[in-house]
Design a protein around this nucleic acid. Structure first.
Lengths: 259, 259
DNA sequence: TCGAAATGTTGCGCAGTGCGCAATTTTTGT
DNA sequence: ACAAAAATTGCGCACTGCGCAACATTTCGA
């Protein structure tokens, strides 16, 4: 009943394989055939077939009309939509959010993407209660906030255009990035550094530093801090950026274990 | 390997049970314990335990810190987020969307909820090309469009308040519903009739009729038609409403089979 | 248009796996 | 602190899921 390596882990092989299929199909943008599944899992075609049938019966996989290969199905969608995901992330991340706020002695925020915006789902305030911006529940633009750019970090220019391209990027301040090209460059830099900076790009006299929270190599949210320019000079970028990254990675790790 | 009833359906029992668990956990708002799972599935505690462990290993279930009971996990979230759901629905629904447009000879739209808005993801135009409102990709308010209200149909007053309550309902026209209470009543009526009506509640001289698309008893989107008041008098409400409902239910059925 | 190769689907039988039972450990409630 | 409930582990049998091989269907190239 268990794998070779750990005789003490009582897990169910066929369920595990089914879940692996879901993840494989979910990650590849294109649809996957039975034969490919069999190859990827190293199992027989007939087995792959039976797995696929089972997953489709429950609506976790579906086929495009007329085709035989598989995409994620509506059950996945229905479950994920109904669920209060923010709650999960908030539950797991809140202690570290507070930690970050006290470490740096500024306001810290937790955010996720919602459509074409950033949604702030939690915050923690340091004793210094000028209690700034970005209250929980607010929506802000993606292209000119540290959280937004952190969430976009892994997107290439094409994906950015698909997501934001319909309307031109609105200019909020003189620092706002207004072209997709420039935003793509910025994202590349964020990937390199690990954190995103908003230097008064959304509101005057407000700087933020945020880092993407990753799970299974996908960005699922961001965490960061905000402060007026006077308290967040350039010279502190790398120190604070490091701290934010560490916390973001820690939260990613907690999601993995999530126990 | 198969259930009692159909010896010809080659499905995998333990995967199926695992998926059933995901759906059970996903639908109940609160977290579920091992004991409850065992009860709900009619299996032994030890089995339920092994299922839960397997699901958690892959991140499809998670526990709140310190607790032992289960919520949907981050894998579910990550998969669903990455995926291009609109595409699935558009693929499946487009033929019927066109059908609806030609049947009624007006513009038809397909929409899903995105956060606190309605997102139009597809449309079909009749020959009569005054090609109205609601282009694909646009966001509109939930509380004053037929699509929005159809999507909210199953929500009770508490849920509406949780979703919309932070800011007051904006008044677009003299017909706009502006209180949560009135909206809840309207939703109840929609549930009863099966379709929602927007009588110039969002834009003057524009009426829409839309019906919720359901999957597993959850509203996942809406389909409907739009036309100027002159071409959509009260007397046609029930006839068109019926037609829209029929198509919406048909799409729901296609999602079930989705082949 | 046809035939060959690839893919999808079904039947079958064995071995490995998942199941329930029962014992042990941990948690909860009073 | 004790009892009751829940979680976790061990164990062995039966049944399930697996690969194999046959069959059906689709794809593709000439």
């Amino acid at each position: 009943m268990q794998t070779k390596d750990n005789p003490r882990a009582p897990y169910i092989q066929s369920l595990d394989r089914g879940l692996e299929i879901l993840q494989l199909v979910g990650r590849s943008k294109r649809s996957i055939s039975i034969a490919e599944l069999a190859d990827l899992l190293g199992i027989d075609r007939s087995s792959a077939f039976r797995f696929a049938v089972t997953l489709r019966r429950r609506g976790f996989l579906s086929c495009q009309p007329g085709k035989k290969d598989f995409l994620l199905g509506p059950s996945m969608w229905a479950l994920a939509r109904e669920y209060d995901w923010s709650k999960l992330l908030v539950d797991i991340a809140h202690p570290d959010l507070s930690l970050l706020a006290t470490q740096i002695n500024e306001t810290a925020h937790l955010a996720v993407r919602e459509g074409k915006s950033v949604l702030f789902i939690d915050s923690a305030h340091a004793s210094r209660v000028i209690a700034a911006v970005g209250r929980t529940g607010e929506l802000h633009p993606l292209h000119c906030t540290a959280h937004g750019k952190a969430i976009l970090a892994d997107a290439d220019e094409g994906e950015l255009r698909a997501l934001l391209g319909l309307s031109p990027l609105r200019k909020y301040t003189k620092n706002t990035i207004t072209t997709i090209g420039a935003l793509a460059e910025n994202c590349a830099a964020i990937q390199e550094m690990g954190y995103a900076i908003d230097d008064s790009e959304h509101a005057e006299d407000l700087r933020c530093i945020a880092a993407p929270i990753r799970f299974n190599n996908h960005v699922i949210g961001s965490i960061g801090i905000s402060a007026p320019v006077s308290r967040l000079p350039d010279s502190l970028y790398s120190e604070y950026g490091e701290k934010v990254c560490v916390i973001a990675n820690k939260i990613g790790g907690l999601l993995r274990n999530s126990e």
